[in-house]
Design a protein around this nucleic acid. Structure first.
Length: 663
RNA sequence: GUCUCGGUAGCUCAAUUGGAUAGAGUGUCGGCCUCCGGAGCCGAAGGUUGUGGGUUCGAAUCCCGCCCGGGACACCA
């Protein structure tokens, strides 16, 4: 018999939900062909008033059998042997079966996992070999806010997969071979400031990149400006004509479309004009621009020379790369994020010709308008694997990478944590890979939305530049420091030295940035807002960190070390609703992780963390540890506190967020 | 034009993928420190889920039409 996914839970004896599903299996036998689907409809209750778990299968099953849902529910409950786990199941509403776990069972389960670092979460029965492709910045330019989501989400997914027992290879597929290298090579040759280069090679490279980019844009804009003005004028005319023309059904819609087109043309023109103005306002820049009229083409030529193996450009590339990588590493070190591999585009360069050859041999690639293309089913646009000029594209590199990951890394699954704007590319890539013979791998685009500013537009500085990641982190940590200072200064006896305050500020600031990102569901755009992410109230990383610090405060106050609890048995007493809720919440950790991994959604873990910290805060409010009515209750609560602290620490660690004993 | 993602409380976002009376945070108003950290806890108000139809026991979720917004659509990656 084939066992579907739910039965993985057999090993996972601490997982309440799996165990409950296991009890329903015999009770449902013979009622439906697809028992797994029915078991899948047993879930945590969506409201505590309905109990702890609810089974929703009676309605669809009744339909299948042509009976009434409550009747079916009654029959299933009649067959169900669950008295040792749950109280008597109740049927509610149209036919929901509500389950409440016996409190003594919760207590017993909690005792068993009390000192388990994994909180009783078993590793998966069938580990997969997963490559996670994330972050992937261009090395020649500084990392900016756009790289934040991929980096933070990707890291969290890696950590969670590893925790679950999968074999994970994180790979930073950096852009180290593209046109931007031609630009810095050109810049280095013509605009290098030797003293700046000596002082800070990265800084100088960033400046050169920006300069060459600006000058290229200038010439492109100057060339395009007349056409753009004409275009704007044309659409102004057309708009006017239409407005004056006869009313009919299509007019309104057409008008809206044209207004949109007009607005787009207008802002396009404005952007181009700004690029031109910026150069013209500076005599030095203007002189540079005029001295290098065909800078864009010549930068492209430098790239082409590099790709062709030109000795001088290769030497420059070799000189630049360590500098660029060190700059990236500095950010990753601050973020406390690491990679198993950093195999960039350049690394796959030697394989590209072979990839194209293989595609041709299999008859997958055809020439179209001079470019060699694959036309995967369901897509009209070509997937270009070799350009007219003979150069390969990132499509080619991505295919080479897939093959490498399958053949050399034995990957069963590859996750691409990349901006949703590239979803069409990945659709084509995956379709092509399947045709090409990589159909045995699971390829998944874990897409995410844009980081927006409070104005609802992509997050930029007031001057309109993208925000550098470095300065963003600085700002968050600075703000966190102010909060930490203020808080500690308020105490009669400050607890933190200046050095400790700095360390805490870093934990709080970084946590705020990461949590803010992760707690949104990844496909939606999210608004970046320092004030919200570092708010001292509400659903932020600090809330969890604060809860953690409060637990530590209890132990400090009572002068008991958390480790000292571990020696003896942990008898748990759950006499109050607050203790019970916290216990149940702690036992749901495994479920939260499963939910995250079912579709790579870290926000489901932030949700669990918030609920857990909230359950603790209620407990903290109502259930005094130091004034517990008995020694055994006090000990029980201490164990609960210790467990909760480790739950928060472990959960946050899967998001890449740290905790501090004192905030 | 084609494709794609979205529109949910004043604001920022959820809703375990079709389940019960759509939930959190924030903001507003009102309670709670002789007691372990008040960065906390409790309560109230706040909704025609863009809109009109359809599918069924049941829809924010699936299908169709329309209205708004973001994004992608041939040689940048």
């Amino acid at each position: 018999m084939f066992f579907p996914r739910v039965f993985v839970g057999w090993r996972d004896f601490m997982n309440l939900l799996s165990e409950i599903k296991g009890r329903f299996l015999p009770a449902l036998a013979g009622l439906s062909g697809d028992v797994a689907a029915l078991l899948d409809m047993i879930r945590p209750a969506q409201d505590a008033k309905f109990g702890d778990f609810q089974a929703n299968f009676a309605m669809p099953l009744a339909k299948q059998l042509g009976r009434s849902p409550r009747d079916v529910a009654t029959e299933v409950i009649g067959r169900l042997q669950i008295a040792d786990l749950c109280e008597v199941p109740e049927i509610a509403g149209p036919g929901f079966i509500n389950l409440r776990v016996r409190t003594d069972v919760l207590a017993a389960r909690l005792s068993q996992i009390a000192f388990d670092d994994r909180l009783g979460v078993a590793t998966v029965a069938q580990p997969r070999n997963v490559v996670v492709d994330f972050s992937s910045p261009n090395v020649a330019k500084p990392m900016h806010v756009g790289h934040l989501r991929s980096t933070v989400i990707g890291d969290s997914i890696c950590r969670t997969l590893r925790f679950a027992g999968h074999s994970v290879t994180s790979d930073n597929h950096i852009g180290d071979w593209g046109t931007q290298f031609g630009m810095i090579i050109y810049g280095y040759r013509h605009f290098r400031d030797e003293s700046s280069w000596q002082a800070s090679a990265v800084g100088e490279l960033a400046r050169l990149y920006k300069l060459v980019n600006q000058l290229s844009d200038y010439h492109a804009s100057v060339a395009l400006l007349p056409a753009m003005q004409q275009n704007l004028e044309d659409s102004r005319q057309k708009l006017k004509q239409l407005q004056d023309g006869p009313d009919d059904e299509r007019k309104k819609k057409l008008l809206a479309t044209m207004r949109k087109g007009f607005a787009a043309a207008e802002s396009e023109l404005q952007a181009a004009q700004e690029k031109v103005d910026r150069i013209r306002q500076s005599p030095a820049l203007l002189a540079a621009a005029e001295a290098h009229p065909d800078i864009a083409r010549r930068a492209r030529e430098e790239t082409a020379k590099l790709h062709a193996g030109d000795a001088e450009n290769t030497a420059l590339w070799n000189q630049f790369m360590p500098v660029c990588l060190a700059a990236l590493q500095q950010i990753y070190t601050r973020l406390k994020i690491g990679f198993d591999l950093t195999l960039g585009e350049s690394w796959f360069n030697p394989f590209l010709a072979g990839v194209v050859e293989s595609l041709q041999q299999q008859g997958l690639a055809t020439l179209s308008e001079g470019a060699l293309c694959v036309f995967p089913e369901g897509s009209t646009a070509p997937f270009i694997v070799r350009k007219t000029d003979g150069a390969y594209t990132y499509a080619t590199t991505d295919l080479a990478t897939i093959r490498y990951r399958r053949d050399q890394l034995a990957a069963q699954e590859v996750l691409y944590v990349v901006d949703s704007r590239q979803s069409e590319h990945f659709q084509q890539l995956f379709a092509t890979a399947r045709l090409w013979g990589c159909g045995d791998m699971t390829l998944k685009h874990v897409s995410f939305g844009t980081v927006m500013g409070s104005d609802g537009r992509p997050y930029k500085t007031r001057a309109g530049d993208t925000v550098g990641l470095e300065s963003l982190l600085d700002e968050a940590i600075l703000r966190a420091r102010r909060i930490v200072d203020e808080n500690d200064d308020r105490r009669e006896q400050p607890l933190l030295s200046a050095e400790e305050r700095g360390r805490v500020a870093e934990i709080v600031g970084l946590g705020a940035v990461k949590y803010a990102d992760l707690h949104h569901s990844r496909d939606s755009d999210y608004v970046f807002d320092y004030d919200k992410m570092l708010a001292t109230t509400g659903d932020t990383a600090t809330y969890m960190q604060y809860a953690y610090a409060r637990v530590c405060g209890i132990f400090r106050r009572l002068q008991i070390s958390r480790e000292s609890l571990r020696g003896q048995a942990a008898a748990i007493e759950l006499g109050t609703p607050e203790e019970r809720r916290l216990a149940l919440q702690l036992l749901m950790f495994g479920y939260a992780i499963e939910s995250v991994l079912s579709d790579y959604r870290p926000h489901l873990l932030t949700q669990w963390l918030f609920e857990t910290a909230n359950a603790f805060s209620q407990f903290f409010d109502k259930c005094s540890v130091q004034n517990a009515e008995s020694e055994s209750l006090k000990r029980s609560r201490l164990v609960l506190c210790d467990l909760m602290a480790r739950a928060i620490r472990t959960g946050l660690s899967l998001l890449g967020i740290e905790v501090a004993e004192v905030l």
